[in-house]
């Protein structure tokens, strides 16, 4: 394995959980809902994935459990926000706090227990190819799934009828409602999709990245995913680019340090957030660009009139 290949492999691992969680949140926000509970849903996905993989011995079941766990927790957000029209910001923050606490409670018995690893799938012959072999053909299934979902979400949002409905709900829920679409149902499904994707992102941590359970092991990646959605200005392809950019920064700072290149570690840790602020400034200077992509009803509660 060459040095560059090893670095690239590490970057793929670092970027994938961010990409999964960000894609989910992107769809949620496109439907006009801002769910600040990504961190909470990720960590519950992580513990659910770990627990089920440990109990059944199957990492694949663990991955499914991670998605289901994240989606189940998202209901704790969806029900008050969509049915009772509570404040989305507060409910989302509460979801993160709740998820962190709940996962700690569920995971208490698993501390200090090695987990089950989701092995990479090695395509015979192709994964033996020099340089690109392991990178392109020897990853775990979630890496391919994340790439597939970039295309799937892009197609869904901009090429499918239901994607049009979802964007309509996000841009003007009153009109969408008047046209006869169920705003609440669309948003419910979007929030659950977001929960499942965040759960997968968390599961990636506890099943692939570092197969173990530690309380608070997502360590703020849910917040990076939230920043990533804004960074990507609500476009799936840009979320892919952003996730790999953030992942690369995270990895390259370690290589810089190990190679004794004199860059302050704190500065490098700050870069993803700095990049997000720069993008925010750039897009907010151009009013048409914001209007183009920002869901107009983002964060606004909707109460259907009869």
């Amino acid at each position: 394995m060459t040095g560059v290949e090893a670095v690239l492999l590490t970057i793929v691992t670092a970027s994938t959980p961010l990409l999964l969680a960000a894609l989910g949140e992107l769809v949620v926000e496109r439907s006009g809902v801002l769910n600040l509970g990504v961190e909470g849903m990720m960590i519950v996905g992580a513990v659910a994935g770990f627990a089920i993989a440990y109990a059944t011995g199957s990492a694949v079941l663990g991955v499914l459990a991670a998605a289901i766990g994240g989606a189940a927790l998202s209901l704790v957000f969806a029900v008050p926000v969509l049915l009772l029209a509570t404040n989305q910001y507060a409910t989302g923050l509460a979801l993160t706090l709740f998820g962190l606490g709940l996962s700690g409670m569920i995971g208490e018995g698993f501390v200090g227990t090695p987990g089950i690893r989701l092995d990479p799938i090695a395509i015979p012959a192709l994964s033996e190819l020099p340089f690109v072999g392991r990178l392109v053909f020897g990853q775990d299934v979630l890496v391919y799934f994340a790439f597939f979902m970039v295309a799937a979400v892009a197609w869904f949002l901009f090429r499918s009828r239901w994607g049009l409905v979802l964007r309509a709900v996000g841009d003007n829920h009153t009109s969408a409602h008047a046209l006869g679409y169920s705003v609440v149902r669309v948003r419910f499904l979007a929030v659950m999709f977001g929960g499942a994707m965040a759960g997968l992102g968390g599961g990636y941590l506890s099943l692939v990245y570092t197969p173990q359970w530690v309380e608070g092991m997502t360590a703020g990646r849910g917040w990076i995913a939230l920043a990533l959605v804004v960074f990507a200005s609500w476009l799936p392809l840009r979320a892919l680019i952003g996730a790999y950019l953030f992942g690369s920064i995270m990895i390259l700072q370690f290589h810089a340090q190990a190679a004794e290149i004199d860059v302050p570690a704190q500065f490098m840790s700050m870069l993803p957030y700095l990049a997000t602020i720069v993008v925010l400034v750039i897009i907010s200077r151009d009013a048409t660009r914001i209007r183009l992509n920002t869901p107009a009803c983002l964060g606004r509660p909707f109460v259907p009139d009869r």
Partner: peptide, 20 residues
Amino acid sequence: KIIWVNTWIDPAKEADAAKA
């Protein structure tokens, strides 16, 4: 070779540092 990760516990970050 020293890597500062600026955290006491973040498994993924620590793993990345070890890989690097």
